[in-house]
Design a protein around this nucleic acid. Structure first.
Lengths: 341, 341
DNA sequence: ATTCAAATTGAAACCGGTTACATTTTGCCC
DNA sequence: GGGCAAAATGTAACCGGTTTCAATTTGAAT
């Protein structure tokens, strides 16, 4: 109702100019203590609420940042929480969008972000085919940080994990258990680079242990439960199925485990499965999932700090963060029967 | 770079007034076809991008809506997707916040929404202690729709499920399987009403089947995996533990199942578990979780349509939607040994 | 050709802040 | 008390659209 309150109203009320009232909010050190108190009292009494939208507009400095996630699941949710926890404290808001790995949706949302004149964009799960779009955005001076990914082009800011090493560790763990026929469930690596890196790690581990990679053991799927199940079905129908599989995301691992159980087989007795991400649910599965942990929350924190620094002009050069990964051993992997350990 | 483009630039370029250019965007029917083309061409050539923030400001009509979720998991993620899918098509954006069931965070985010001058607020997982705040917001004329909840106060808009009936169906299913000692894992029902309703349904089912409710079988926890496990641990340590448990959310059910397995017991052989929500992961658990399905996506769609209608003044009276729930039978419940079925 | 309403366009104020610049106050020193 | 720099405040333009109201153009009917 009394929402037509503005700084001008307050100014009139206390007999000051709007400029002074404005200064009370955005640079109080320029205002005498006495005046500040007078203004704040009037603000409290009238119930005036600062208009951040008007501020963004008039100062030509946006304080909203756009965030793109591929799926609205708990994993990216953690990154979102990390982002929120830094932005909330400093008066920034986030406008978000879920792409569902769909290029058109991604473009639409990006466009929307531009129209909103966001201060910057945090992109997770980039679809590589989009790189030209990102480039053009970045070239226009819009701060962009890519999260979860490591781009080849170092002009961009990104904060991600050592995916290759993670993939290698996972595979080596399986090998150390005596497995030599190891399948891999992997996201669309032709499009998403982080996932390509995990595959690279897998291949490297194989090579270093003198295991010939077998293309028929590599299944390329979107990281969704159902696709993990389908991929695992493919693997299990092989003449010579793997004795262990490395799923490049826990979502795929969950689907894979489900398929194994559906067929009356057991994890890890009949087949070992290791995941990637350490999704919240991983520890609570049956059996609890052995996986590669990744600190999604921290990713969000760093991304947010970076984008804000960039937006404020405090950061000038491209930033590249690479976080480590940890092997979390639980119960979904066992030694290869022929070679106990 | 050339981002200092405005309608005025375009207007000058084509020799028209800014007013006409503006009209091309927001009410093209007022502009002759010839002029429209001329303007749109100039727009294309110059790469001008409409400034939605300026529009919101100058028209005093915001096109961003605030969305509050308690946790950033896949379940609420589905609701978010539903919201996005309607807002995206009509030029609205959403700014989001995760409360983590924390009152202070909720207040902060709400405040932020007000400062941004959002067109309306969609709240999921309301903490009832907040009702005064909500009331004051609603009284100030700000459209608010409560999602996932059914409030007693019908002045508010809400779209939820028949939680009581869902709880009853779940419990009746367990009873029909021969169970009579049935535990319940339930969210903080003193605070969250939807969860209170599920408890009511449970109690009613018990009563109607002449089963005396036992308070020691009711565990009140936040819907998180770990808390589900803890609650189940409590139940299993009882002198006379339940033979089946109804978890008021799948998150609790997952934790509960995990605890059962940890103790070397089996679901459903040793104890039956039924969940609520039908989270994406439910079907992929081991065993697949029997649960009460709820259409979180649809909830989001309806909520978004409602909030936009409210914001545009097309909806005047409070709207109350109550969606149904479905029993999804999978493999986590079995007949009570003493009374096969 | 006139006439007049409808369609199109323009002029200018406005939204609610910020900010460059000017002006007034304050406080300190001699 | 005078002088002067620093601190505090005021003035007014501006951000990029929208919108009201007026002016002009168009087009159909007479």
């Amino acid at each position: 109702m009394a929402d037509d309150l503005s700084m001008k109203t307050i100014a009139k009320q206390v007999g000051l100019s709007p400029a002074t009232v404005s200064r009370v909010f955005h640079s109080p050190h320029l205002v005498s203590l006495k005046t500040r108190d007078k203004v704040m009292n009037a603000v409290r009494e009238s119930g005036y609420i600062y208009n951040a939208a008007a501020k963004d507009f008039s100062s030509k400095k946006s304080t909203v940042i756009g965030v793109l996630v591929p799926t609205a699941d708990a994993l990216f949710g953690n990154t979102l929480c990390g982002i929120q926890n830094v932005t909330m404290g400093i008066g920034y808001s986030t406008i978000q969008g879920v792409t569902n790995y769909d290029l058109e949706t991604e473009q639409k949302l990006l466009r929307q972000f531009q129209e909103r004149r966001v201060a910057g964009i945090i992109m997770t799960g980039l679809v590589t085919g989009q790189e030209k779009l990102i480039e053009s955005l970045a070239d226009s001076g819009l701060p962009i940080v890519i999260v979860w990914e490591k781009l080849t082009d170092s002009r961009f800011n990104f904060v991600g994990f050592d995916n290759k090493n993670g993939g290698k560790i996972a595979t080596e763990y399986l090998i150390s258990l005596g497995h030599r026929r190891i399948g891999m469930l992997v996201g669309p690596f032709t499009k998403v680079s982080r996932v390509k890196k995990r595959l690279d790690g897998y291949l490297e581990a194989l090579r270093e242990n003198n295991i010939e990679p077998d293309d028929s053991l590599i299944m390329e799927r979107l990281p969704r439960y159902i696709e993990g199940a389908e991929a695992m079905a493919g693997l299990l129908s092989l003449d010579n199925p793997p004795t262990a599989v490395f799923a490049a995301s826990d979502a795929l691992a969950v689907g894979a485990m489900h398929e194994v159980h559906q067929r009356g087989l057991r994890v890890p007795n009949d087949i070992s499965i290791i995941g990637f991400d350490d999704a919240d649910v991983a520890a609570f599965l049956n059996p609890p999932l052995t996986t590669i942990r990744v600190d999604a929350y921290k990713l969000g924190v760093i991304a947010a700090e970076t984008i804000v620094g960039l937006a404020k002009g405090e950061i000038l050069d491209p930033r590249h963060y690479t976080l480590g990964t940890d092997l979390i051993v639980r119960k979904s992997c066992a030694a290869y029967p022929g070679q106990p350990r």
